[in-house]
Structures are given as C-alpha cells and as structure tokens.
Design a protein around this nucleic acid. Structure first.
Lengths: 123, 123
DNA sequence: CTCATTGTACGAGAACCGTCGTAGTTTGAC
DNA sequence: GTCAAACTACGACGGTTCTCGTACAATGAG
C-alpha cells in the first residue's frame, strides 16, 4: 500500500507542515483545489516535472503571498505534499494517494488541461 | 460532429435559457461547477438516469431557490442543458460536448464520486 | 376561469475567496 | 555575527458563493 502521506514523525531539522491523511481527502475538495487557473498551472507544472519543485520554480503572474496561498490550498486539500529543505519548500503531487483514492482522476484533469491549453494556443 | 448545444432558434412555445456554446466552456469552470457536494449529487443523479430529469426529481436537502441556483451554475458553466417542458424544466448532462472537449473527464469524476460514496457508506 | 404545480426573481446575510503589501521568520553562506 | 534568499503571517480589500424566504410568473388540468 504505497502512500504519499508524510510520516507522522517530523523529519530531522525542519518545520512541519500539516497535510490531511489520505482517508480524509474529499473529492469536492480536490475539485475545488483544481478549479482555479493558477492552481491548475501549478499542478500541471508539477506533473510535467515528475519530481519536486520549489515554489520559486513555478512562475505565476501573482505576488509571492498569493503564491503561498495557492500552494497552501493545494496542500490542505490533499493535492500536493510540501516539505521544507533549507530555505526552500519543495512541492510534489500526491500522485499515489490520489491514484489510490480516485483512479484516473488527476490524469483526466491533466489531459483535459493540456487539450484546452493547446486549443487556446491555436486561438 | 455531435453537439448538445441547443439550437439558436427558440423551440416552439417555451421560454429560452442561456447556455454557453461548446467552445466557450472552460475546464476551470467545469471543475468549479463540480466542486460542490450538492451539484455533484445532481450530476451523479443525471448520469445514473441516462436521460432527462426535471428539477423536482432530484431531491436535495436545500430550499427550492437554492436548487434553482445550483442548476443555474451547472448550466452556465456548461455542464448541463436545460429546457422547459410545460411547467417542468428538464435537465440533462451535456455529455457529447464535454466528451468532445475533455474526453474521459466526466467519467473520471463520476467514477471517483461513486468510489467515495461507497467508502463513506461503509464508514 | 380557477387552481395546483413548477420553477424564477429578488434581496439579504454570512461565509469564503483571490489578491495585495508589509513586516517577520527560518535557513544557509560568508 | 551578518546578510541575502525563500517563504510565511497577518490584515485588508472587493468580489463571489451558498443559503434562505417571500413574492411572482408560466403552464396544463379541471
């Protein structure tokens, strides 16, 4: 049973961040988290990176505090996992948890986002 | 090219309702429309019915005016099609349009909703 | 015409959301 | 110890959402 949920014990010398356990993740919350262009952009970038990225790696046309807000929404609703590494905060999709809960959902949303982006690009 | 978009010409003796044309439907709007438990319930019921239902056929634990509100959100964001028939207002999913725009998306959401409902049912 | 059915329009209230700027914290490098 | 980098906390703002109740409109049946 793979899981993305961070272990309860706080890692060595880092601040800890609250994540919902997998069984508390609600579909409506996930959809709500994804239902914002900025957050969809974050999620697409993370999916494309297939690894972890810090917040600064994902450029958004909003202020830094707004970025913090969007990352927090994604984390609190179970879409991403965040952890500190030095001064940076690394982000990654909770792919395993989401796949276990809602198989195919995230892939479907990502595919839909790609299709729409391609359509919009072509005017 | 199949479409669920109602024809521009208003049908015989009925009030007309505004629907976004297929090319105006945005992924973030669809996700937002689905990101509410009441609306998710409406969509699941419509999907299970595989046809059209009027608003009264879908019982929700909210007032009638709140129902009207949720149906309108679904319509204005391109998820359902509504048309009057007598005093009733028939609702149906815009399956063809959504499938053309975002293949697999609605099915994925519906499957996720079923899975979650089954989990919650089993406590 | 009258009436019950079905849904709407409107206004209101409470809550929430996305955005920002400013001031602050934590960390690693020097 | 000092400093820059990365991110947060907090409060504020304007806008939107969800909910309701009341009053109203359209339709079909009798």
């Amino acid at each position: 049973m793979p899981t993305d949920t961070p272990s309860a014990a706080a890692p060595s010398g880092s601040r800890s961040l609250e994540h919902p356990p997998r069984e508390d993740i609600r579909l409506a919350d996930v959809l709500h988290a994804l239902a914002d262009p900025m957050r969809l952009c974050i999620v697409r970038t993370l999916a494309a990176a297939e690894g972890e990225l810090n917040c600064a790696d994902i450029e958004l046309p909003v202020s830094k505090s707004t970025c913090t807000h969007h990352f927090r929404v994604l984390r609190e609703h179970g879409v991403i996992q965040q952890l500190y590494r030095g001064t940076a905060k690394m982000n990654r999709l909770r792919t395993a948890d989401l796949e276990e809960l809602f198989p195919g959902l995230i892939d479907g949303v990502l595919r839909a986002a790609d299709l729409q982006a391609r359509r919009l690009e072509a005017e």
